Simulated assay, not measured.
Amino acid sequence: MTDWVAILKEQSATGDQMGREVPQMLANPDISEAQVKTLFSALEKQAEFVEKLRMALEKFGHDFSIIKAAERLEER
């Protein structure tokens, strides 16, 4: 059985890390267009995965607080 809550915690940690690192990367004046495109692609993949995770949590009837945490992560 899939541990959706553990996956949510892992994705939240990844989101926190990205929230710290992305602004630093974008503030670097030497960042290339290719790096920005790669970064954007990674952020899009993360967002798509979190959306699917939120839908799975809803489907399997997890508590409202768990679903709200997934929604907050998805909004980030």
Score class of each variant (00 low, 15 high):
residue 41 S to G: 14
residue 26 L to R: 05
residue 5 V to A: 06
residue 43 L to W: 00
residue 32 S to W: 01
residue 70 A to V: 05
residue 53 L to D: 02
residue 49 F to S: 02
residue 23 P to L: 08
residue 16 D to N: 14
residue 26 L to I: 04
residue 2 T to A: 09
residue 54 R to W: 04
residue 37 K to C: 09
residue 35 Q to E: 14
residue 34 A to E: 15
residue 63 D to Q: 10
residue 65 S to H: 14
residue 38 T to N: 13
residue 29 P to S: 02
residue 19 G to N: 04
residue 12 S to P: 07
residue 58 E to K: 08
residue 15 G to W: 00
residue 6 A to I: 02
residue 75 E to Y: 06
residue 75 E to F: 05
residue 24 Q to A: 14
residue 9 K to P: 03
residue 37 K to T: 14
residue 23 P to Y: 03
residue 33 E to I: 10
residue 22 V to L: 04
residue 40 F to G: 08
residue 17 Q to W: 04
residue 33 E to H: 06
residue 41 S to C: 12
residue 36 V to E: 06
residue 5 V to H: 08
residue 35 Q to M: 09
residue 45 K to P: 00
residue 30 D to S: 11
residue 23 P to M: 07
residue 1 M to I: 07
residue 7 I to F: 03
residue 6 A to G: 10
residue 75 E to P: 00
residue 9 K to C: 07
residue 52 K to Y: 11
residue 68 K to Q: 14
residue 17 Q to K: 08
residue 55 M to I: 09
residue 17 Q to N: 08
residue 22 V to Q: 00
residue 57 L to I: 01
residue 38 T to L: 09
residue 17 Q to A: 12
residue 33 E to L: 07
residue 64 F to I: 12
residue 14 T to K: 12
residue 27 A to H: 06
residue 15 G to V: 01
residue 3 D to E: 13
residue 73 L to E: 04
residue 13 A to L: 14
residue 12 S to Q: 15
residue 46 Q to S: 08
residue 39 L to N: 03
residue 12 S to E: 15
residue 57 L to S: 02
residue 3 D to S: 11
residue 59 K to F: 05
residue 2 T to I: 10
residue 29 P to I: 00
residue 20 R to K: 15
residue 20 R to C: 10
residue 66 I to Y: 05
residue 16 D to F: 09
residue 57 L to K: 00
residue 67 I to E: 11
residue 33 E to S: 11
residue 71 E to T: 14
residue 2 T to V: 11
residue 23 P to K: 03
residue 15 G to S: 14
residue 3 D to T: 00
residue 65 S to R: 12
residue 2 T to Y: 02
residue 4 W to P: 03
residue 59 K to A: 12
residue 46 Q to G: 02
residue 22 V to E: 01
residue 2 T to Q: 05
residue 31 I to G: 03
residue 5 V to N: 05
residue 67 I to F: 05
residue 10 E to N: 13
residue 8 L to R: 00
residue 69 A to N: 11
residue 12 S to D: 15
residue 50 V to M: 12
residue 31 I to A: 05
residue 57 L to F: 01
residue 74 E to T: 04
residue 11 Q to D: 13
residue 28 N to S: 06
residue 74 E to D: 10
residue 50 V to A: 09
residue 66 I to K: 11
residue 65 S to W: 07
residue 58 E to Q: 11
residue 8 L to N: 01
residue 71 E to D: 13
residue 68 K to M: 13
residue 3 D to N: 15
residue 17 Q to P: 00
residue 69 A to Q: 14
residue 17 Q to V: 02
residue 66 I to P: 09
residue 4 W to R: 10
residue 53 L to N: 02
residue 18 M to K: 00
residue 74 E to G: 06
residue 19 G to D: 07
residue 17 Q to S: 11
residue 7 I to N: 04
residue 63 D to K: 10
residue 60 F to R: 10
residue 63 D to S: 08
residue 28 N to A: 05
residue 71 E to N: 12
residue 51 E to A: 14
residue 36 V to C: 09
residue 8 L to S: 03
residue 69 A to S: 15
residue 73 L to Y: 00
residue 54 R to L: 10
residue 7 I to C: 07
residue 7 I to G: 02
residue 28 N to E: 04
residue 67 I to T: 09
residue 46 Q to M: 06
residue 52 K to F: 08
residue 74 E to W: 11
residue 58 E to C: 05
residue 9 K to R: 12
residue 23 P to I: 03
residue 45 K to I: 03
residue 19 G to V: 02
residue 55 M to G: 06
residue 40 F to N: 08
residue 68 K to F: 09
